[in-house]
């Protein structure tokens, strides 16, 4: 029983990280039709920024952790906004070329990160509480899992409120459905593009800091490895659906954890098989719109 609880909470923690990446990916794809390969770099740059802040302000204090989270999210957001404004925008409506740009950016930035911080993982410390465990129904749960889960839940809540309650949220929801009709109502939808990139970048940057605590290290390849699973999550959840991304994040991460434990470390394959099954029986994803 305690194993199941441990797997559940660890899976939720991993799912939280997936969600922080997938939510932005899914919104960007839903609104703009762009598959953002640079999203992993948003995460990595956030993770490194957070780590740089933490080691300068005393890595083991809660204060430095909170600052590192804020800085990580801010750096991710800035990088993402820059990407949209400078590179993506000039290829308006040329989706494949936009994807190619993000591919090139991902190549270039990962290489740059390797040049700056080296290719080896940098091991990190957080507040002492992180490395302790909490007893939950008999299972000893590493505390950093809870932080990821809480942060992702807050991000989800914030995004839902933003989408439901604000005018820009309304524009984004309408744009996901029918982008050209939004412009035909006299709305400059490009502002919404910058906005989803910024929001997605912030979530990824935040995810980067949390991921570095979850895995215990930062490396230039951190973003890329999470990105692949975030892609799978967005396809399974339904491209463009935030709720879909949330549900699929948790489902994929739990599946992975349980398969890794009970099916001899085959988590990654089980996830790919799940992807194949979803595509065979529901090509638009669990909560995706019918194309």
């Amino acid at each position: 029983m305690s194993t199941v609880i441990l797997l559940l909470v660890t899976g939720l923690g991993l799912g939280a990280l997936y969600f922080l990446v997938a939510s932005g990916l899914s919104l960007i794809y839903g609104l703009m039709g762009v598959l953002n390969f640079a999203h992993g770099s948003f995460l990595t740059v956030g993770a490194f920024a957070g780590w740089e802040v933490a080691r300068r302000t005393g890595a083991d204090s809660w204060f430095s952790f909170l600052v590192s989270i804020l800085i990580g999210a801010a750096v991710g957001a800035l990088f993402a906004a820059f990407t949209e404004l400078v590179l993506i925008r000039r290829l308006y409506e040329r989706h494949i070329e936009q994807v190619l740009i993000t591919v090139g950016l991902s190549l270039a930035t990962v290489a740059l990160f390797e040049g700056i911080w080296g290719t080896d993982p940098v091991f990190i410390d957080g507040p002492a509480w992180f490395s302790q465990t909490t007893n939950l129904l008999g299972a000893q749960i590493p505390n950093d899992r809870f932080i990821s889960i809480i942060a992702a839940a807050l991000v989800l809540l914030g995004m839902v409120l933003f989408l439901k309650r604000t005018r820009y949220g309304m524009i984004i929801r309408a744009g996901v459905e029918n982008r050209s009709m939004v412009t035909a109502l006299g709305i400059d939808v490009r502002k919404a593009f910058t906005l989803v990139f910024t929001i997605g970048g912030a979530a990824a940057g935040l995810g980067g800091v949390l991921a570095s605590h979850y895995f215990g290290y930062v490396s230039p390849l951190l973003g890329g490895s999470l990105l692949i699973f975030a892609f799978i999550v967005t396809v399974i959840g339904g491209l463009g659906s935030l709720t879909g991304a949330a549900v699929a994040s948790v489902a994929v991460a739990l599946l992975q954890q349980f398969a890794n434990f009970y099916l001899f470390g085959t988590g990654d394959f089980v996830v790919v098989i799940a992807l194949a099954l979803v595509l065979l029986f529901r090509p638009s994803g669990l909560l995706g719109r019918k194309s």
Partner: peptide, 14 residues
């Protein structure tokens, strides 16, 4: 970093 240069070149070509 060769890949940095190649990636940048790629972006410029696109």
């Amino acid at each position: 970093e060769p890949l940095f240069i190649l990636g940048t070149l790629f972006i410029l070509v696109v």
